[in-house]
């Protein structure tokens, strides 16, 4: 398959961007420090117990995974929210659209380059993560599934950024809206579920011995990447199912199939939403699209 030209260009620009190098450098320093701290603690304890705590090694893995996830949430919106509006502001979008590139190729090229950052973060941290394998406790498959989930979440967050970037002329507006939307997805969905629960609870106060159950409203959390991520990590770390315990706070989901296969289902739903965002974004930058629906507010520069 031929390299997407837009991706190729972004690659060149990344390669020379000081910003990206600094981010990766800082990220690796954080990882190294955290790993060092945990090891130090581990060795310190083992001096008294005479054995290496298997749990601490899993802990390194968990912390690494969360740091990667956190970096992803911080970096991807910034990269993608400016991807299209930045071309518009730089007055290069018209030229790009006058070539034989299709609008979806432009969007996909931008998405690919933001995914590249995730892969960069994942691979540069491999040396440190590999320590975990040396001591055992986590399998290679687990790591691959973790990377897969990171990529899915990067796609989900990235397409939200691209969606707003194609919608707005100014990168600032696109960035603000991307972060606001993400805040709603990360925190708002949880607050929503809690709200529904409180509402149901007040309804039930009259009935003695009743158990409040919000039933289908829990599925809103399927679009929340934090829940998905926490679910996967707790599962890999061998603990109890985090998702089941979260859901059961709001009702009885012991035999619920969606909750049982939550991680896979939420990944599929998030990818489906991403597809919708990409379709809208490419339609939005297509200058010849007949449909006027998304067109309002757009001005040609």
């Amino acid at each position: 398959m031929k390299l997407n030209p837009v991706f190729g260009k972004e690659l060149r620009i990344f390669e020379r961007s000081i910003k990206i190098s600094v981010v990766i450098f800082i990220y690796n320093i954080i990882l190294a420090l955290v790993a060092f701290a945990i090891f130090y603690d581990m060795l310190h304890t083992s001096r008294f117990t005479g054995s290496v705590e298997y749990k601490s090694i899993i802990q390194i893995y968990i912390i690494m995974a969360y740091i990667q996830f956190g970096m992803l949430i911080l970096i991807i919106p910034g990269l993608t929210a400016g991807a299209i509006s930045g071309e518009r502001e730089r007055q290069t979008l018209d030229i790009l659209l006058s070539t034989q590139l299709k609008p979806w190729q432009i969007i996909m090229g931008k998405l690919q380059s933001s995914l590249l950052v995730v892969l960069l973060l994942a691979t540069t941290s491999l040396p440190i993560v590999s320590i975990v394998f040396v001591f055992g406790g986590i399998k290679i498959v687990d790591l691959l599934i973790l990377i897969l989930l990171l990529v899915v979440e990067a796609v989900f967050i990235g397409t939200i950024g691209l969606f707003f970037s194609s919608l707005f002329k100014k990168t600032t507006s696109a960035t603000v809206l991307t972060y606001t939307t993400l805040l709603f997805i990360f925190v708002g969905t949880y607050l929503f579920v809690q709200g529904v629960y409180s509402f149901e609870q007040t309804k039930n106060t009259a009935i003695v011995d009743s158990v409040t159950d919000i039933k289908g409203a829990i599925y809103v959390l399927l679009i929340n990447p934090i829940i998905t991520f926490a679910g996967l990590i707790s599962k890999q770390a061998g603990g109890s199912s985090e998702i089941m315990s979260i859901c059961n706070q709001f009702g009885n989901y012991d035999n619920n199939l969606v909750v049982k296969y939550w991680i896979g289902i939420s990944m599929v739903i998030q990818l489906a939403l991403s597809t919708v965002f990409v379709v809208i974004a490419q339609a939005k930058i297509n200058p010849l699209r007949e449909c006027k629906l998304f067109k309002k507010g757009k001005r040609n520069t």
Binding site: P5, G8, I13, R90, T92, I95, L96
Partner: peptide
């Protein structure tokens, strides 16, 4: 176009090769 921009961090030859690829 009447007004246009260029990308920072691209050389002249890379600039032309990018649009050729497009």
């Amino acid at each position: 176009p009447d007004f246009f921009g260029v990308y920072d961090n691209l050389t002249v030859i890379e600039y032309l090769l990018f649009y050729s690829a497009a």
